[in-house]
Amino acid sequence: MSISEERSRRYTFEPDQLTPVTNPEELKRIHEKTGMRPLPDDEQAWNITIDDLLEYYLKLLTVEGGGKWSDELLDACDAGEYTAGLIIALAACEGQGLKPDRQILRATLASPWCEEGCDADVIARHMLDAAAYPP
């Protein structure tokens, strides 16, 4: 389940390609001009990079999961197999009863490497279900 290079580039930015706008007045003008308002923090999960996602899962599996599946996840990361990495990470979390942070799960689902219907997608959606995360 690899992602095309063209699709990958649409979601990849280098630090020098982005200029954050932090001035509150400028942000206000942009919001008024466009009619767009920022999403709540937990819905801005797309800002998390695939490397950050996989690093989070690697730490979770290493610390909370006693290292089980962390070698497999590290191998996938090293090989650039991001889709496989997410599948390994989510399957390992599910298998060990580990609950990733809700924002991380949303970022996982928003990632272009978590294709709809793949195992990682199914597991992450299940984990976000009300039964997994009571209100």
Rank of each mutant, 00 (worst) to 15 (best):
P100N: 04
Q103G: 09
E14M: 14
L128F: 04
G97L: 03
S8Y: 05
C118A: 04
P135H: 07
P40D: 12
P134M: 06
A84D: 07
C118Q: 07
E55V: 08
N23C: 15
R37D: 12
L74D: 07
D16N: 06
R125M: 07
L90E: 08
E25K: 13
L54R: 04
G65N: 03
L98R: 04
E64R: 13
C77V: 15
L86T: 01
R37E: 15
L73N: 02
L58W: 04
W69M: 06
H31M: 14
P24V: 11
K28L: 15
P134E: 04
G97W: 00
Y11C: 11
R125H: 11
L60Q: 02
W69N: 02
P40I: 09
D121A: 08
G35V: 10
K59W: 09
L73T: 00
L98T: 00
C93T: 01
L60E: 03
A91L: 03
D121K: 04
Y11F: 15
P38I: 11
Q103A: 09
E43K: 14
E116N: 08
L53D: 01
S2C: 07
L39T: 03
G65W: 04
K33C: 09
D16T: 01
P40F: 13
K33I: 09
M127V: 02
A131H: 14
D51S: 11
D52W: 10
S4V: 00
I88T: 05
L98K: 01
P135L: 09
T49K: 10
C77L: 15
P20V: 10
A124M: 02
K28Q: 14
R102P: 02
L61A: 01
T108L: 09
E81S: 13
L73A: 03
T108C: 12
G80M: 10
R37K: 15
E115V: 14
S111G: 06
K28V: 06
P134Q: 05
E116Q: 14
A132W: 10
L105R: 03
A107S: 10
L109D: 06
L61C: 01
L27F: 10
L60C: 02
L53G: 03
D42P: 08
P100E: 02
L18A: 08
A76E: 05
Q103H: 10
A84L: 13
L98I: 02
L109C: 07
I30P: 04
T22L: 15
C93Q: 03
I123P: 04
W113L: 06
Y11T: 05
H31C: 13
E6W: 03
A91Q: 05
P15R: 05
I104D: 04
L58E: 10
A84P: 00
H31W: 13
R106A: 06
P38R: 09
A79K: 12
Q17G: 03
K59N: 14
K59D: 13
R7N: 06
D129R: 12
L27Q: 14
A130E: 14
R106P: 05
R102I: 11
P20C: 06
F13R: 11
A45R: 05
R10S: 08
Y57T: 02
T19R: 14
P24R: 13
E43D: 15
W113P: 03
